[in-house]
């Protein structure tokens, strides 16, 4: 995987902290690899919407990457509940189904962005920079 300039929190220059929510271990590992290549830290993982809500409260991440189709509680409902409790939450929906209804429903519930699987690292990086805005700064990647 190519090296990206490291994304750090602008307030304390610490790695951006992520919560990854997906019922597929494969998908979570794949996203975690990308996040680590951006200099980020996986603060928590969840395999369904209910666990995502409790994990959000526990780890208070800077970014949530949220799948849509999951058992028990789907991602759009989980995003809505998290945002109701934490209006500042930055949630990016990640789904293999990218049709208009899903995107509109996600944004209406307060998600900040939508990315379709399979996720391209450079696309995810650009979206993270956009969603974090002035709350993130970039630094040179450490030598491999």
């Amino acid at each position: 995987m190519s090296q990206f300039p490291v994304l750090l929190r602008s307030t304390d220059r610490q790695p951006v902290r992520y919560l990854i929510v997906d019922d597929s271990v494969f998908a979570r590992k794949n996203l975690a690899k990308m996040i680590e290549s951006f200099g980020g830290k996986v603060a928590g993982e969840a395999g369904d919407g209910c666990t995502a809500i409790t994990e959000y409260d526990r780890v208070q991440p800077d970014i949530v990457l949220m799948d849509i189709t999951m058992p028990q509680m789907e991602g759009i409902e989980a995003a809505e509940r998290i945002i109701r409790q934490h209006p500042q939450a930055r949630i990016i929906m990640v789904s293999s189904v990218g049709y208009q209804e899903n995107i509109v429903a996600s944004l209406q519930k307060g998600a900040r962005h939508f990315i379709q699987k399979p996720v391209k690292a450079e696309h995810l990086y650009d979206i993270l920079k956009y969603v974090l805005g002035e709350d993130a700064v970039t630094a040179a990647a450490p030598p491999a």
């Binding site: 271990v25 494969f26 293999s96 990218g98 049709y99 208009q100 379709q116 699987k117």
Partner: peptide, 25 residues
């Protein structure tokens, strides 16, 4: 390993998800 089954399911999920997005459009 369960990861093998999970990998196949997720790849299937992505392929079908992308295809139905096109058909839905």
């Amino acid at each position: 390993d369960d990861l093998v089954k999970d990998t196949v399911c997720e790849l299937a999920n992505q392929v079908i998800g992308n295809a139905i997005t096109t058909l839905n459009d």
